[in-house]
């Protein structure tokens, strides 16, 4: 009987492991496209977590379902189960395994984080990466209630669309003007809060040309949800072209969703709100935003 139990458990564990592995591989499809070098690392970590998590979940739920199906008391049965109060070796094992598991996950996450080399705004260090960024390629990101504006000081270009060259490390300086905003591009898997009064350096590497969404990720008041912008990642030549064309364009008032909506007569009853900032005046804006 004992041999049979071990065999059954082993088969169940292999089955659950196989399903978990499959779910872990599926997890790559749950994300937006992998458009930054960092996203590949993060998706891999997430896939590992999904695999382990599925195994634990299916194991626990499998045991519970088995108990519900096969260990119910009969309708007129009033006896008790076996009075087992615990099992010291088993309890040590199920303390040790989770401990080793989560510490392993933490170390693996640490390694991934180390590879990503995200620099938070409070780390104004002067490491190699920072010295390299003194090349004049920094892009200023301005967030205000409720508009994004991007400035390319070296090329004297301003825009409401963030353009980045593919396969080059991007250096951004994040500046919030009024309240805390969050700089978040899901396709890059990257996010950074922008604290008013603290310019933050932010770096990453886009690796896939395309058009993505930038969203405010830190709740910023009435028109928070409308505070989105497009991010265009393009080949270096196109990027330089865009900069040249934009620099030659006379600045004009861009469309701004929050401002437009505020000035529209609304038929819905609402409360008084902070007045949106005037739409940015920029060289380049995409009218379809």
């Amino acid at each position: 009987m004992k041999k049979q139990t071990i065999l059954t458990l082993a088969i169940a564990a292999i089955g659950i492991a196989a399903i978990s592995w499959w779910v872990g591989q599926e997890s790559y499809t749950w994300f937006p496209p992998q458009a930054s070098a960092e996203s590949i690392l993060i998706d891999r970590l997430f896939s590992v977590l999904v695999t382990i998590g599925s195994f634990v979940f299916l194991g626990v739920v499998g045991a519970l379902i088995y108990a519900v199906l096969f260990q119910q008391a009969g309708k007129y049965e009033s006896g008790d189960g076996p009075p087992i109060e615990g099992n010291i070796p088993l309890e040590i094992v199920w303390t040790a395994i989770p401990f080793v598991l989560v510490m392993g996950i933490a170390f693996y996450s640490y390694k991934i984080y180390d590879q990503m080399e995200i620099r938070g705004p409070m780390e104004h260090d002067h490491s190699a990466a920072m010295v390299m960024s003194g090349s004049g390629d920094e892009i200023e990101v301005i967030a205000k209630q409720w508009a994004w504006e991007f400035r390319y000081p070296a090329q004297k270009v301003t825009s409401t669309e963030l353009h980045l060259p593919v396969n080059q490390r991007a250096h951004l300086i994040l500046k919030a003007q009024d309240v805390i905003h969050g700089f978040y591009i899901p396709a890059f898997r990257l996010k950074q809060d922008m604290i008013p009064g603290q310019a933050g350096n932010f770096e990453f590497t886009p690796i896939l040309a395309g058009k993505y969404r930038l969203r405010d990720s830190q709740y910023s008041g009435t028109y928070f949800a409308a505070m989105q912008a497009n991010v265009v990642v393009e080949p270096a030549a196109d990027y330089q072209n865009w900069l040249r064309r934009s620099a030659a364009t006379t600045p004009a008032i861009a469309h701004n969703t929050a401002f437009a909506e505020y000035n529209q007569k609304s038929t819905r009853a609402g409360w008084k709100t902070i007045v949106p900032a005037a739409p940015p005046i920029v060289n380049y804006s995409n009218p379809n935003d």
């Binding site: 260990q71 119910q72 006896g79 088993l90 510490m103």
Partner: peptide, 23 residues
Amino acid sequence: MLISVPTGIKVFAWVGTIWGGKL
């Protein structure tokens, strides 16, 4: 991450309680 260890102990203890009982 550490806080999941005492939490995990509880989950396993509940499964251990239910397992083999007369539900």
